[in-house]
Design a protein around this nucleic acid. Sequence first.
DNA 1: GTATTATATTGATCTGGATCAAATACCCAA
DNA 2: TTGGGTATTTGATCCAGATCAATATAATAC
Lengths: 249, 249
Amino acid sequence: MTFVNYSASIAQSKGRAPIRAEDTAALRGLRLFDGIAEATFADLIAAGYLQFFPPGVTLIRERDPADFLHVVIEGTVELYAGSGGRETTMEFIRPVGAFILAAVLSDQIYLQSARTLTRARILMIPAERVRHWMAQDAGFMRMIVAELARGYRQAIKALKNQKLRTGAERLANWLITQSALQGTPGYVDLDIEKRVLAARLGMTPENLSRALASLAIHGVHSRGALIEIKDPAALAGFAKPDPLVDAPE
Amino acid sequence: MTFVNYSASIAQSKGRAPIRAEDTAALRGLRLFDGIAEATFADLIAAGYLQFFPPGVTLIRERDPADFLHVVIEGTVELYAGSGGRETTMEFIRPVGAFILAAVLSDQIYLQSARTLTRARILMIPAERVRHWMAQDAGFMRMIVAELARGYRQAIKALKNQKLRTGAERLANWLITQSALQGTPGYVDLDIEKRVLAARLGMTPENLSRALASLAIHGVHSRGALIEIKDPAALAGFAKPDPLVDAPE
DNA sequence: GTATTATATTGATCTGGATCAAATACCCAA
DNA sequence: TTGGGTATTTGATCCAGATCAATATAATAC
């Protein structure tokens, strides 16, 4: 994994990565752009950059001033943060999700860094434009309020998850949620590395291995990236899933 | 500590706890009401209840639908949450702070419960009024966006604090932040019980005692509710404070 | 296909933190 | 002022999780 910082060069080169007409229609369908004025949408898009990034690219770094609103159109982005030499994964952003709105809106520095885990298509809109249109277009501001509220509640859930559960419980609940999201009741197909999942769940890779092994008595068996859930009821009995912690916002 | 639920009875009795003229001026000064239209303010206040609660009163309970926006005018309120039999403290709300805006705005259930730790004066505004005026008054919506962004960033910081630090480190950083907030460089005066602080820091009361004792080598000594910081530099050397985790939003 | 490198697992050990139990200190009401 | 209840501290023990080390497995480049 190479850590080349592409974002700096993109921010400079204004003319690059124009948005093609065929993409515009797809973008119009995003929840964040629902019900906003046509003029607002047109200007945001005109000012934005839509671009592919290879895996492992650092898109933003905590402590930097928020210069762009990023929207993931395709691929997976990892939000992570560090302090005092340690590092942890905060969240994964998948299509279609924005990050990190709060810093952009209040013109502050980022609290989290972001890197691509896969090849990813990212829409980047200059922060100043977002703030400008938020003030102009009430419909856009309504969408922003909804998105912010969603992000806030997600963060609260993550904090509850971390403070109220053991590692094995977090893993068990993650498996339940994930198998539901993927629509595959009997198993979960990992599309991220286990070391990244471990960081997301707040544990070391070694401990994730052991936690996974410990779930065998509840019918969980893993073969590589495929994790089989033989008895969902038994797993739920151990995990005690709680919508106020686990349900995605 | 008695756990009487006052809020239910208040929600029913429309006529109770009217807001006196002398209070209105003070409320006008709140950040949340800054720069909003006079009509908006007047109606929000007219629809609201301003009321004293004794200590230990449960104001809201997680899982309940968000019926009121609460604003702490005086006293201290504890936000807490539970799952699977465990319980933890999420945050303290002190004047002037609102909770829990996100649930009110998106008309959802609360993710957290709230109880008074001290005698407290709370302004309660019906959720429906807040949503109504948010849609009408752009200035009010701007304030809401700012408050939501603040809450989101605070939650992210709390999550980083929890995932990236040991208990003793969280305590050390809390002491540093608190002594700065209180404006007393050499000490911290606890205005909450240690068991509550322990929950807030994500540890047991026993462990808080031991963590406090372990900070003695960094010049921290406690006598009851007074915690002395003999050598702030030494303490900071251990705590490694980080504005991206510790600075209040 | 094989060498190379990164990822994942397993084992041993150590530390952080929880739990259980008991003693002490504190607060408040009679 | 004196009890009685609660909060805090201290000690002993146990469990969760981190770290260190070694091996096995998978992915990748050549």
